[in-house]
Design a protein around this nucleic acid. Structure first.
Lengths: 339, 339
DNA sequence: CTGAAAGCGCTTACAG
DNA sequence: CTGAAAGCGCTTACAG
């Protein structure tokens, strides 16, 4: 139905090989023929069928992005979609397309990761860390299929992965508070088992040590993070211990609750109490006053992951494991230098 | 490198046609051969190359989703990704894959919509309304390519589109307030040119008329929606006119500001003042007290759009234009019956 | 019931 | 500089 390379060849009076060579800029063709064929292409408004091209070339120029696609996921976990967005942009710059795939297991089916690899639909996969089980990890390594895991996998192995350095982010937040002159600092994090929360806490402790200080165990709180939990905990902490000068909020939800708790106590920010959090989204921008945040550019993380994957496709021996996308401090109105 | 239909045929001692027929359940094959071939498939762990299949069958079993993929888009417009999510789920149920494509124009290139159609990469496209210009609309119609526009296009034409009925949503919100017994009602919307805001306002007016009432022009406010604008406007309105009983907030950002403004005035919700908004995300769930919302299920909208598109592919004559996904009222704590 | 052959729309050695 | 032919991994009339 649509115009093919054959139509162009017929119309221009050459063979399809010649047309193909001109399109791909390969071989030596006389300028005359080139002009004629290009004119014909324009005239017929010919676009090569990209599936046929990729099929003949034996590459797909497609990457599959595997993540959780449950209902409400974009609302509950916007960061993942920001990462996807960054991956898309990097890939499209390199003339790759991006397909989506849900990681949730279905009865009687193989793991989606394995399906993605076996389908022959992609030259590589970008996989959210949570989708990687021992079984899939083994399959990925055995098949030697190009991949980048987003978020460092818990198991120790030869997978390629990329992540942000949450330890560094935690350190960055604590350094800032210490440099401002805050001494009595509290950390409120997600319940103890949460990986990211623990990493950030680790960084906070490191910063204390660097300053010859020590974050006391009683100043570390972990809650199941929702706004009202954080709000009431904040009131408790600040009432029981008025010497506290600053709070490190491990995520935006906690920061939102902390901010509300402070407001309840009618304390002034940052003079009576300061706080800092991580990530500019989803809530940091709507908290009053605008909080100081350690920001992690998720778009860039996705961008880096995609670029790493393409490098891996071009160079299968590459073992890429590491951190990219430095956390950066964005000064807001909830912390103040020179106490 | 990976195992092909040829390997299976060789191993099982049959022709590739036979293998193909068995895989697709076509033709009449003896149970004996079927068993033998299936055993071989299992043994070799053969999966058909889906690109080769789709190429031979001349369909792609792929849909392209065209939307804005700018940095921060998932944070600023999570609804679009929720729609995408719903589309993905519907498509994957029907054995279609989903590819992403950015709608922003690049210098010297055709419109992404036209590129998507010409690439031969997809059997159909799902397009965000904002990507549809007069030129692309014409191209889509002329090419007769299966498509569904998400959000009704402004131009009057033969495009297929699906949208939520914002008029109905507005009506639903106002009906609720009127049924609660609120009489003095204010509407705060986005600046006059915003399509959705206008539609919702239209519905509000309709509800008033249905109740033999009339929404006075001085009770309609339009602002460039950000939190502090909404907050200060709320204070102004309620100070100048203490008779106001309820506020309809056209979006979550406005609702957040309105809620803050009410708090500033130390008024009680819903006894002194009530309010209602649209959508449960991104902020409705973190506003205190939890607001009554007219919720629109964006996931379902995407789901419906995708199903409509597949119907359109199977039946090219179908002209689908209409509203789906009824808005539903979710009672919160910011409105109260029986005044 | 089974298989040889043409075809999907391209690319790419290879021959001339 | 140009083209005929094989091939990418399948499907699908068609013949037997």
């Amino acid at each position: 139905m649509s115009v093919t390379i054959k139509d162009v060849a017929n119309e221009a009076g050459v063979s399809i090989s010649t047309v193909s060579k001109i399109i791909n800029g390969k071989g030596s063709i006389s300028q005359d023929t080139i002009n004629r064929v290009q004119e014909t292409i324009r005239k017929l408004n010919y676009t090569p069928n990209s599936r046929a091209v990729s099929f003949a070339k034996q590459n797909t120029k497609n990457i599959i992005f595997l993540t959780s696609m449950k209902k409400n996921e974009p609302y509950l976990n916007p960061h993942m979609f920001e990462i996807m967005d960054g991956s898309y942009i990097a890939l499209s710059d390199l003339d790759y397309t991006l397909s989506l795939m849900d990681i949730s297991m279905k009865d009687g089916q193989e793991s989606p990761v394995i399906q993605a690899i076996q389908s022959g639909c992609a030259d590589g996969i970008l996989v959210h860390g949570s989708a990687v089980t021992e079984e899939t990890a083994k399959y990925i390594i055995d098949s030697n299929f190009p991949h980048v895991i987003i978020g460092s996998p818990s198991m120790d192995n030869q997978l390629c992965w990329i992540d942000t350095n949450h330890v560094l982010a935690g350190q960055c937040a604590a350094e800032h508070l210490l440099e401002c002159g805050y001494m009595n600092i509290v950390f409120i994090g997600e319940k103890r088992t949460d990986f990211i929360s623990n990493q950030r806490l680790k960084g906070v402790k490191k910063a204390f040590i660097n300053h010859g200080l020590h974050l006391k165990a009683e100043n570390i709180y972990s809650i199941s993070s929702n706004i009202s939990n954080a709000r009431s905990l904040t009131k408790e902490i600040l009432t029981d211990n008025p010497k506290i000068q600053a709070i490190i909020c491990e995520n935006n939800t906690i920061a939102f609750g902390v901010s509300a708790g402070i407001l309840d106590l009618k304390l002034d920010v940052p003079n009576d109490i300061a706080f800092i959090t991580f990530d500019s989204y989803p809530y940091a921008n709507i908290i009053e006053p605008k909080p100081t945040v350690v920001d992690i550019d998720m778009f860039d993380l996705g961008f880096q992951a995609a670029q790493t994957l393409i490098r891996k496709i071009d160079n299968p021996l590459l073992l890429a494991q590491g951190y990219s996308t430095l956390p950066i401090l964005k000064q807001g109105l909830t912390t103040k230098k020179g106490l």
